[in-house]
Design a protein around this nucleic acid. Structure first.
Lengths: 118, 118
DNA sequence: GCGATACTTCATGAATTGTTGAAGTATGGA
DNA sequence: TCCATACTTCAACAATTCATGAAGTATCGC
């Protein structure tokens, strides 16, 4: 991922409503949520919502697909992943022990089920 | 980390020079870099740089410490970590297999040295 | 085809942000 | 104390971004 793309994604996320939309979609997962449902959930006008979703889509963070009259938006998890990688790039500087905690806490979102050490 | 803090951090990073500064400091690690050196490295006026660094510092992403006449800036890795966690929060939605690749690729920045498979 | 629903696009005005020059503060050396 | 270096702060202008109302496009059921 290049600098411009990263900047576009960060700018897209750096706004109250859009960050809320993104987090809602992250929680919703690959199934996604219809534009209208997002608008209602966040109490936003449909046209405003549409503009916000366009920004997120142009940044590559979400993808739109039509389903009947609705348009379903879902997070592009690989794009999200690429952004995290970009931000942590070369964070080691030859010292993995420094950035290891960063990765560890990010991984905490998904505790492995089988070996749950207290 | 709350929504406002995350928003402040994303806004701080969502700007060309500041993203460059941040990445430079990520690479530099805990030792940090003097404000003047950052300004020279990125070919930016000292006062402009000062304003940018202030934004990053107010967002909590970097910390400043004085060393003689210089002021050294360094990334606050725990703040950076908290932001990544915030963005990936509840990304599982009960399905770790979805967000696992996200974490895995972020972790790729720090390949474990001892067991280098492949 | 017609009307209703679901969203998007466009144009406008208000607010926020970024850069610059000038002036100010802090440290170190003579 | 005096000067130079290293940064920061202030004030002001230019550029970008955001929300809104009005109008437009696509789909569905009748």
């Amino acid at each position: 991922m290049d600098n411009d793309a990263a900047l576009k994604r960060l700018s897209a996320l750096a706004q109250d409503s859009r960050l809320a939309i993104f987090r809602l979609l992250v929680k919703a997962g690959p199934a996604g949520v219809a534009a209208g449902d997002i608008a209602r959930a966040l109490d936003t006008a449909p046209n405003t919502m549409s503009a916000q979703l366009l920004v997120l889509a142009n940044a590559g963070l979400v993808r739109a697909r039509r389903a009947g009259r609705s348009i379903i938006y879902a997070v592009d998890f690989s794009a999200m992943s690429a952004l995290l990688v970009f931000l942590t790039e070369d964070c080691c500087g030859g010292r993995p022990e420094i950035c290891a905690p960063v990765i560890a806490s990010a991984a905490a979102c998904c505790p492995p089920r089988k070996s749950r050490r207290a």
